[in-house]
Design a protein around this nucleic acid. Structure first.
Lengths: 360, 360
DNA sequence: TTGAAAGCGCTAACAG
DNA sequence: CTGTTAGCGCTTTCAA
């Protein structure tokens, strides 16, 4: 007959074990680890060796209870399968472990409910928060920020420290690029309506276009996914355009696939610009011209700002940090060709709104 | 002059506050939440409403200290920027939250040292472990498994529950596919030497090829990245082949890019098969024929196995679980064309080992 | 510099 | 069914 196992088969050695083996008080052992200065150098040394021999490891749970120090940070992302976040995660993780923290990646799974739950579960465990989630409302963010030091990534929430890509300048460069190639009307392929970034990009595009005397048009909203891009292609066929700027690379790539399927030649029929420079944007067909966000730096910068804020116990980022974007020109954009596109749907072609021979 | 803030500005209400407000003992409040059956239905109800009013939230840290229940699981992955893991993470997360657990994604950053550190930090916090890390040695895995219930993902460690893709069958299908297209010599483009999966795939390929009377050759090892694939293209130019099976999609895609750059026409000059069906394999050029791993199921299956194991306090997976792979045929494979390739390097072409006009 | 003691918030025996 | 009482392992006053 099997012995009924004890509650804990064999528990780790504790501070008491070490103290016993050293002939000192438990509190001294504790000090030897947390405040080595305030204990006799020799004793401290002895304690450390004994602890090592016994295989003592300080229990983070027990430490966290009285102190609140869990050495844990949370990075909440909108969707773990979106490649946009990959490099951000990596950057955040690097900065966190440099600071002696462990990063808890929380996936909101593009669902407000899942997000709320996951956040509730992790909030009490972590010392600080980086929020990179587009769906969350400003007020929900503020509620979270009241509980823990928080940095917002990729969107601006008034009075909260935030880190964003310099979308206006990036967009400006994209519009200039397309203008130089001879395009006179640009289509914006919009992302989710609620998205802060989407609003920002669309506004920036209108401003840039206005200054450069370019016409703009908006299609959407679409989901920020390959599927969303596919849907956008369908819409674009109805209302063709020689050049389009997409909400992000995912939409751009999806759209290019959709266009190619319906017989469009790329980039001759439509020049496409994306945003973010995610994994894959360099090997899709044609390789995507895109406004590259400094993904990894975005992540590490946010975490460092958070760590600073936690150290000084006060927000250090009084205004949004703008990280520069960069236009990466690849194969998906080209000089405008004046020729009615064969791929345009019949319905649209006969609608006669634009005259192929017109000079506009 | 600023008031020196109290240690905790305003701490959350505790069980004691609720108990006081209800006129019951703290232990009763505790019971009302953990064992609702063992408390008077009315009192339980009253306690819950009062708790809600006070905004009481049970402190997971304090709960975890005496019980060990943190409701946390860890998924250790080799590299958070590798798209291979994206869907695995998602699947694991789903299964975890279904089971009431939160998934801690630990990124080993392709570094043994970072991995060890991160694991040490998280191990004491979590109740169970899913290890999806190729670099870790079997013995290191066993050490970890001794501390916490563990499931190994994508490799087999004797006597440890593990979940893997059915590589032999997947490989078999790939080789058959290429054989049917008329290829008689296949090149395996290897991944990292230490990788369990690499060994498995290469062995499976040799076996399948033997049965089908096909010749095989091995190139590598290469890093399991796009860069690794680029390097592989260079090697392949030296020793051309009409068809290649790559360690994984990343290598396959990188290699195709390299080949295309050096003037090869794809898939006519080289048919390429990848492994895993990662994000991007459908929109690269040409779209990649690949042995699709059931990524999401892999993740969720592993977590469910782990949860079972934790519940029964004994391994439930006596032998490795094999999840079926599926050959996805896309554009990167085609019938063999008998024609000396223009892209082959001069050095190789003059080496005269194979005669272009020969029938072999 | 060190020891003793109180307590972080919760759970789980054990009585009643 | 409910109250009382010890802790979980560590930190942190407060004395010595």
């Amino acid at each position: 007959m099997e012995e009924k196992p004890a509650r804990q088969a064999r528990t780790q050695p504790t501070i008491y074990d070490v103290a016993l083996a050293c002939g000192v008080a438990p509190s001294t052992v504790s000090r030897a680890f947390s405040r080595p200065g305030r204990v006799n150098a020799e004793t401290a040394e002895r304690i450390r060796t004994v602890a090592a021999e016994l295989g003592y490891r300080t229990n983070p749970l027990a430490r966290a209870l009285p102190t609140g120090k869990t050495d844990l940070l949370a990075l909440v992302i909108a969707d773990a399968t979106n490649p946009f976040f990959f490099e951000i995660i990596r950057g955040a993780e690097e900065a966190a472990s440099e600071g002696g923290y462990t990063m808890l990646v929380v996936d909101a799974q593009e669902s407000v409910e899942a997000e709320r739950q996951a956040l509730n579960r992790t909030l009490p465990l972590v010392e600080g928060l980086v929020l990179a989630t587009s769906r969350m409302s400003d007020s929900a963010i503020r509620v979270a920020a009241k509980q823990r030091p928080t940095v917002v990534l990729n969107r601006v929430v008034t009075d909260l420290p935030s880190v964003v890509t310099d979308n206006p300048r990036g967009m400006r460069r994209a519009v200039e690029h397309l203008a130089e190639l001879g395009h006179t009307t640009l289509t914006y392929v919009a992302g989710p309506e609620a998205s802060w970034v989407d609003g920002m990009r669309w506004r920036s595009m209108r401003e840039a276009a206005f200054e450069l005397d370019i016409k703009v048009r908006r299609l959407g909203p679409f989901a920020p996914t390959l599927a969303g891009g596919l849907a956008a292609a369908e819409k674009l066929r109805q209302q063709p355009s020689s050049a389009a700027i997409a909400y992000n690379d995912l939409v751009a790539i999806g759209m290019m696939r959709g266009l190619a399927r319906m017989g469009a030649r790329l980039p001759e029929d439509v020049s496409v610009v994306g945003f973010d420079n995610i994994f894959g944007s360099d090997f899709c067909t044609p390789p995507l011209t895109t406004v590259a966000a400094p993904l990894r730096r975005l992540g590490s910068f946010a975490v460092r700002a958070l760590l600073d804020q936690m150290a000084t116990r006060a927000p250090v980022l009084v205004r949004p940090a703008l990280l520069p974007a960069q236009l990466v020109v690849r194969g998906s954009t080209t000089r405008k060709v004046r020729r009615s596109s064969a791929w345009v749907s019949a319905s649209r072609a006969t609608a006669g709104r634009t005259d192929p021979s017109g000079t506009a």
